[in-house]
């Protein structure tokens, strides 16, 4: 058994909320720079170069990459040998978000009630997904999610007979419907299989996988590549203003499903695909 004080979680979550909003991971930085070299549209290249410049300015001026610093989505993968002390874990996580958004000059974008719509003032509550894993370590992923792209995400409850072609059509139609609204170039997180909620969670998780890391399953790896090429032939382009870079990556995660179903979730993410990961 390994004992953790929940205060350690608060501190880490606070730092990770700030870190994720001020700097993108290396894989995201590289893929945007690479796209700027390969984009065929002159206006598209100009926009991609601005995105590169934007990341540099975020660091220099200590200004968040995007003003929509998101709703904090947090994955807690907790080793089953871990025991918590010092308070309730969920409270400690929310406190970390509260401190991070306050001290990091991050925007408070959460309303307490979907109809009352009064801002909670500290960006809590976060959306937290817990998973028990083997071992005695804790893996934390903080993924602040902006809603320009979140609003353009879709779930399709396909029929088994729709097959892989049905999945391709679903993903392409989601990207086309999103068009300029999702702040392209986008990263497309796709969850296939499971149930209604499981495929959505897979799609969200898929967005936290590095964009230079392809699926471990050969057929899925090919599907990721094919979809990326198809999406980049739509012409939507950087900022939706035309071009050959509409998506930077398609990340697909799969899970077993029911004999009667083929659930597909498409979680759209803008080029500010933020996440911070720590293993304690």
């Amino acid at each position: 058994m390994r004992i953790f004080d929940v205060a350690e979680i608060t501190r880490n979550i606070k730092e990770m909320c700030i870190e994720a909003n001020y700097s993108l991971t290396e894989d995201m930085v590289s893929v945007i720079r690479e796209a700027a070299k390969n984009e065929e549209s002159p206006l598209g290249r100009r926009i991609l170069n601005q995105l590169d410049e934007n990341m540099k300015i975020a660091g220099e001026d200590q200004v968040p990459i995007c003003q929509d610093t998101g709703m904090a989505v947090i994955f807690m993968d907790i080793g089953q040998e871990v025991h918590w002390e010092g308070g309730f874990l969920e409270d400690a996580i929310q406190e970390g978000v509260r401190q991070g958004y306050q001290e990091g000059f991050l925007r408070k974008s959460v309303v307490g009630d979907p109809f009352g719509r009064v801002n909670t003032g500290d960006n809590t509550p976060a959306v937290i997904h817990y998973q028990i894993v083997p071992g005695d370590s804790v893996r934390i992923t903080v993924a602040p999610k902006g809603f320009g792209s979140e609003n353009m995400s879709r779930i399709f409850m396909l029929k088994p007979a729709d097959g892989v072609e049905g999945v391709k059509n679903a993903v392409i139609s989601a990207v086309k419907d999103a068009g300029p609204n999702a702040c392209p170039p986008v990263v497309v997180g796709v969850g296939i299989g499971g149930t209604f909620e499981k495929c959505a969670l897979l799609a969200k998780r898929a967005l936290t996988r590095p964009v230079d890391q392809r699926s471990g399953i050969a057929s899925i790896r090919e599907l990721e590549q094919e979809l990326l090429e198809k999406i980049n032939r739509t012409g939507i382009g950087p900022g939706g203003l035309g071009g050959t870079t509409t998506a930077l990556a398609v990340n697909i995660e799969t899970y077993p499903t029911h004999i009667a179903g083929l659930p597909v979730a498409v979680n759209m993410c803008c080029h500010v695909n933020r996440h911070a990961v720590r293993v304690l």
């Binding site: 300015i57 200004v63 900022g239």
Partner: peptide
């Protein structure tokens, strides 16, 4: 007018 979405740091200047 369209401004570049996600370029909030650059636009702040």
């Amino acid at each position: 007018f369209g401004a570049v979405g996600g370029a909030g740091a650059l636009l702040s200047r």
